[in-house]
């Protein structure tokens, strides 16, 4: 994990960070409120003899004492969905409501998208898009098992997303959970850094800028856009935000997150960003025994 040395100046207790990255990740599921509630999910786990803990920072998450959460009745019925704990951050930050038009620009394989639908009582219009048809197949499989009836699934390039299939011309809210170098998933995928290079980070950050820019354009004035990644690289996080702040009429806003986190960084490798990028949040693996994550909330100008 020499690749992470570049983050030493950013991270307190860097040795603990590296040690956490070496440890496997706990098995976590998110209870799917479209089909059940946490009490019944816990009762089903009790019946199955599977021990669990409930992380305090967000209701509806369960850390399971099994490495096969799929081999359970709860999974058959779509009562829960296996996903990394930190991947449950984005949807509540976007906070979609029933009746709204909600965009998930890079939605596959569907953990965050199904979370968005559940938060809106499965009665919004969720446009779940992904460029990869193979990954969309996984998304549809997950959405169907989880009982998501409010999603329209599209297979387009999010960088120039066209609203043409729909009758409306703007979304109320948009989630850009961008393709990224996935450094923060190292605990889940020990080979996550195999293809890592600074060149790849530069390439993917161009893609991220374009996707976020288009999502802001496709969101109505006063609407909300959430940008998230599972990586630490400032090039893919604060630098992308800095770019969209310059190009589009939008601003970063504060939000609450009950997980222990750091603020966004306003400077990296000699480059200064818009100081409001500090409103973004960085989640490091050693603080909460989770994966790594980055999340920011933007409001589109009126």
């Amino acid at each position: 994990m020499d690749e992470f040395e570049r983050y030493k100046p950013l991270i307190d207790d860097f040795e603990a960070f590296l040690a956490a990255c070496e440890r496997p990740l706990p098995t976590v599921v998110r209870v799917n409120s479209i089909k059940t509630d946490p009490d019944r999910a816990c009762a089903a786990l009790d019946e199955a003899g599977i021990a669990y803990e409930e992380p305090a920072w967000q209701p509806g998450l369960l850390r399971l004492d099994t490495d096969r959460p799929g081999a359970t009745w709860g999974s058959v019925h779509g009562w829960w969905h296996g996903q990394e704990e930190v991947s449950a951050i984005s949807a509540p930050v976007l906070d979609p409501r029933p009746g709204e038009r909600v965009f998930a620009a890079c939605a596959a394989p569907g953990g965050k998208g199904s979370h968005l639908a559940a938060l809106a009582d499965d009665s919004c219009t969720l446009v779940a898009n992904d460029r990869s048809l193979g990954r969309l197949s996984a998304l549809r499989f997950n959405f169907e098992r989880l009982g998501v009836t409010s999603a329209a699934v599209t297979n387009r390039d999010a960088r120039n997303y066209s609203m043409k299939p729909f009758d409306f011309d703007a979304f109320d809210r948009a989630l850009v959970d961008a393709p990224c170098s996935c450094e923060g998933t190292i605990r889940k995928n020990p080979d996550a850094l195999d293809d890592w290079s600074e060149g790849y980070i530069e390439t993917v950050s161009t893609l991220q800028r374009k996707i976020l820019e288009r999502a802001v354009q496709a969101t109505r004035p006063g609407g909300v856009v959430v940008y998230s990644t599972c990586t630490f690289a400032p090039e893919e996080n604060e630098a992308v935000l800095d770019d969209v702040l310059e190009r589009e009429d939008c601003r970063l806003v504060e939000f609450d997150l009950a997980l222990d986190h750091d603020p966004g960084i306003a400077e990296w490798h000699g480059e200064a960003f818009d100081p409001s990028v500090r409103k973004a949040k960085r989640v490091y693996p050693h603080r909460n025994d989770t994966g790594g994550f980055f999340c920011a909330r933007l409001e589109v100008g009126e």
Partner: peptide
Amino acid sequence: MTDENGPE
């Protein structure tokens, strides 16, 4: 993003 039911 872990998915217990992959496309396979």
